[in-house]
Computed example of a mutant assay.
Amino acid sequence: MALPHAAPAQPVDVAPLGAALTSTQSSALFKSPGLEVMRLVLPAGKVFPPHKVDGEITLHCLEGELELSVLTDGAEQRQRLRAGQLCYLEGGVTHAVTGISDASALVTIVLGR
């Protein structure tokens, strides 16, 4: 069964989840031929394992705190993202995300040009 996605021009609430954070799962918000947007929910200590995608990515921490681990040229870089901070990654970069505290983030992926 396909996940429901927002229709064009349909508002989507991406406000912090607050008390509902611990009972909410990650979800796809919308997908088009060129762009996908998801809400990533990571409880403290949970790791979204190393992976890469072809297109550019933004990771916008909406609440809590995340650690972004990026592997480039054999070296690992770690960045902490707090609520309100955004990070951009080029396509094809191996990365992982860890919940430092219960957190949610808006993830955008460019799928094609």
Rank of each mutant, 00 (worst) to 15 (best):
G64E: 03
E36F: 04
V47Q: 09
A103L: 08
P50G: 04
V53L: 13
E56C: 04
L66R: 02
E65N: 09
V37K: 03
A96G: 11
G91R: 07
S69Q: 14
L29E: 00
V41K: 00
L81P: 08
P33E: 08
H60T: 12
Q25F: 00
G64V: 06
S27R: 13
Q79L: 15
T22A: 13
V41H: 00
T22M: 02
E65L: 05
D54W: 07
V47G: 04
L29T: 00
P33S: 09
F30M: 11
A96R: 02
T58I: 04
I57M: 11
S26F: 01
S69I: 12
L62D: 00
E76K: 15
L21T: 01
L71H: 05
F30D: 05
L81E: 10
G55M: 09
D54K: 15
T24W: 01
S69Y: 02
L42D: 00
C61D: 06
V97K: 02
F48H: 13
Q79K: 14
E90W: 03
G55W: 04
E36W: 04
T24I: 04
E76Y: 08
V97R: 02
V14A: 10
T24M: 05
Y88C: 11
S27I: 01
P33L: 08
P33R: 09
I100M: 08
S23W: 02
M38W: 03
T94I: 08
L86I: 12
E76V: 15
E56R: 12
V37H: 04
G64K: 10
I100K: 03
Q85P: 10
M38I: 10
V37E: 10
G64M: 05
L89P: 08
K46N: 08
V97G: 05
R80S: 15
L68K: 11
M38C: 06
L106H: 05
S27H: 07
I57D: 04
S101K: 00
G74V: 09
H95P: 12
S26D: 05
Q77C: 10
A44G: 11
L106R: 04
V14S: 06
F48D: 07
L17R: 00
P16A: 03
C87D: 05
S26R: 03
L35H: 07
L40T: 02
E67F: 06
P50D: 08
A75T: 15
A28L: 15
L68D: 11
L89F: 07
V70I: 15
M38G: 01
L21A: 06
L40I: 05
L68H: 12
Q25Y: 01
E56V: 05
L106S: 10
A75F: 08
Q85H: 13
L106Y: 05
D54P: 10
K31C: 08
G45D: 03
S101V: 01
I100E: 02
L21N: 02
L71A: 13
G91H: 09
D102T: 01
V53D: 12
K31N: 07
G92V: 09
P49C: 09
A105K: 00
A44N: 09
A15S: 15
E63G: 06
G84C: 13
E36R: 14
P49Y: 12
Q77L: 14
V93C: 07
A15L: 09
S104N: 11
P49L: 11
V93A: 04
G91F: 06
A44T: 06
Q77E: 14
T98N: 05
F48R: 06
V14K: 01
E63Y: 01
T94W: 12
A19K: 11
